[in-house]
Simulated scan of single mutants.
Amino acid sequence: MDVREALYTTRMMRRMRPDPIPLETQCRILDAAIRAPNGGNTQRWHFLVVDDREHKEKLAELYRECREREYQEIAAGLMGRSLHGDDEERAETLRKIKASGKYFTDHFAEIPLLIFVFSIDDHGGANIYPAIWSTFLAARAEGVGGVMSTVLRYAEDTVTDMLHVPVEQGWRMTAMLAFGYPLGRWGVAANRRPVHEVASRNHWGQPFGAEIPAPLWSGPTEPAGTQHNA
């Protein structure tokens, strides 16, 4: 797969088929992930794979509780979310996000593969996030979709206890990655503010120097009416 296709079409997929992901595919995904750059090659990461149905059912209940807590904080204004577009467009975007999030929550126990990512002394995630993004790109090359979630941070102690994480050694949960073969199709995210609106040069607020009104890679045209996950 062309690198630009991977970069432009790797999106968060919350609707997945329950079909298992073969072990050899998982090996290729994680082997690519650990090749990511990290400071001093210290490799302060650990990827805990969960595919046990009983574990997933327990985590599903926790996830539902944590998601409700997060939405309560959003409703109370304790957690801001800035969405691009006018009022009507923002409302529609939020509706789609909530709908896909609800589907993900309702079908959590059916997700074929969960990967909990742990790090230690990671300087704000500088070492682990490149590895996480490599995981998604590698999965994309395998036709596997996924989403990163930090919702379970509300129940981190319960999760780490359930998974027997040696927190006394300093390990902390960075995120949970969920993977499966997507129900939707891949496509370029069109709802992004263009580069010249979110970038400047030399000083904040100074013009970037070029305008990019449309994606610079479009790839193959997909059938009309194709649905994508937010």
Rank of each mutant, 00 (worst) to 15 (best):
P220Y: 00
P166H: 02
D106E: 15
T226D: 09
W45A: 07
M162W: 00
M1F: 12
H196C: 11
A33W: 09
T10P: 15
A33P: 08
R11G: 06
P130K: 10
H203G: 00
G124Q: 13
G40F: 13
N127T: 13
I74S: 06
G219L: 05
S119Q: 06
E88H: 07
W133Y: 03
A32I: 01
Q206W: 15
Y8L: 03
N229C: 15
R140W: 15
G225R: 10
V167Q: 08
A189N: 12
P182N: 00
G205A: 10
R95D: 12
D121K: 12
E73L: 13
D31M: 07
R11Q: 04
G146M: 00
D106I: 05
I34E: 05
L137H: 14
Q169M: 07
L83G: 01
A131Y: 04
I21Y: 14
R90F: 02
A199N: 07
L78M: 08
V144F: 15
M162K: 01
A189Y: 09
I97Q: 07
P18G: 04
F136K: 05
I29D: 02
R153V: 09
Q43K: 12
E110Y: 07
G209V: 14
R193A: 12
F108A: 02
G146E: 01
K98S: 03
A91G: 14
F108C: 00
D86G: 01
A141N: 13
N127Y: 03
T9E: 13
D157S: 15
S100M: 04
A60R: 04
R64M: 04
A230P: 04
S134M: 09
A138M: 07
A33F: 06
A6G: 02
L62W: 00
T160C: 15
S200V: 08
K102N: 10
I29H: 11
V165K: 09
E110T: 08
W186K: 04
Y103Q: 03
Y71M: 13
D87A: 13
V3Q: 11
V198W: 10
W45N: 06
F47A: 01
A75Q: 10
T42P: 00
A189E: 05
G187Y: 01
Q43T: 10
F47S: 05
H46G: 06
R14H: 12
Y71I: 04
M148Y: 02
M148R: 08
I21M: 06
P220A: 08
R64I: 01
P18M: 06
I120R: 14
R64Q: 09
A126V: 15
P22N: 01
G40W: 14
L216V: 08
N191M: 07
K96V: 10
L83S: 02
T25P: 15
R44E: 12
V195R: 12
F136D: 05
P22W: 00
I29P: 15
P223L: 00
H196Q: 15
Y63V: 02
D122W: 03
E92H: 12
P220K: 08
V195Y: 10
R11M: 02
P37F: 02
P223V: 00
L62I: 09
M16V: 15
K98M: 06
Y154W: 00
